[in-house]
C-alpha cells in the first residue's frame, strides 16, 4: 500500500490519533499523539510495513512542534519498497509512551537508547535500562538543554589507587 493511501486510511480510522500529515522531499510524515502509537503501528504493520528500520527521538526545544519530544519511527515495506516516517509527540511533563517491543524485537535496544539519551520512558518495555551510558549516569545527554561539554561528570570519576608509588620528581 502506498504511503498516500495508507495515511488517508489511517486518518479515517483513527481521527483522534492523527495530528497532521506532512510531506518533505516526496516522503510522507505522519504526526500522531503518543498514546495511540501502538494502535497505529499495529495497523501499519498489518498493512505491509513489516520492517522497523529506525527508531529515534528529537528534542523540539527550539525547533518547535506539537510537544517537547518527538519519537520517530522509520518503517519499510518489503513488498512495495516504500518507506514511511511516523512521529509520536511526547510532552515534557510526562515523557511516556507505549513500547512497540511486542511488534518488533529490534525496538528493545533502540527504545533503551532513546531512554538513555532522552529520558523518554517506554511503558511495558521488558528491560528499560541505560544502554550507552553507565547505570549511575545522571541526565540525558541528547536533550537540547544538556551542555555539549557535559556537566563536569569527569571531575567526579573515582581515583583508582593500585598501590603504585608516585615517582619522585627529578631535581
Amino acid at each position: 500500500m502506498s504511503p498516500a493511501t495508507i495515511t488517508s486510511q489511517l486518518k479515517e480510522k483513527f481521527p483522534e490519533a492523527i495530528l497532521d500529515i506532512t510531506e518533505f522531499a516526496d516522503e510522507k510524515i505522519l504526526h500522531i499523539k503518543s498514546q495511540h502509537i501502538l494502535l497505529v503501528l499495529t495497523a501499519l504493520k498489518s498493512a505491509g510495513y513489516n520492517f522497523l528500520a529506525d527508531l529515534t527521538a528529537i528534542d523540539n526545544l527550539t525547533l518547535g512542534g506539537f510537544e517537547r519530544f518527538a519519537v520517530s519511527y522509520h518503517l519499510l515495506c518489503h513488498e512495495t519498497a516504500e518507506r514511511l516516517t511516523v512521529k509520536a509527540y511526547v510532552s515534557e511533563e510526562k515523557p511516556t509512551l507505549p513500547s512497540v517491543e511486542s511488534l518488533w524485537k529490534t525496538a528493545d535496544w533502540q527504545e533503551r537508547e532513546v531512554f538513555d539519551l532522552y529520558g523518554i520512558i517506554f511503558e511495558e518495555h521488558p528491560n528499560l535500562t541505560r544502554i550507552m551510558n553507565p547505570d549511575d549516569y545522571e541526565g540525558y545527554p541528547l536533550r537540547k538543554d544538556y551542555p555539549r561539554l557535559g556537566r563536569k561528570e569527569r571531575d567526579d570519576f573515582p581515583v583508582v589507587n593500585r598501590g603504585i608509588r608516585k615517582k619522585k620528581p627529578l631535581e
Partner: peptide, 15 residues
C-alpha cells in the same frame, strides 16, 4: 538540528 545514524551493527548485534 539533529543527526541520527542508523547503525547496522546495533540492530544486527541485538539478536
Amino acid at each position: 538540528y539533529r543527526v541520527r545514524t542508523r547503525p547496522p551493527s546495533l540492530m544486527n548485534y541485538s539478536i
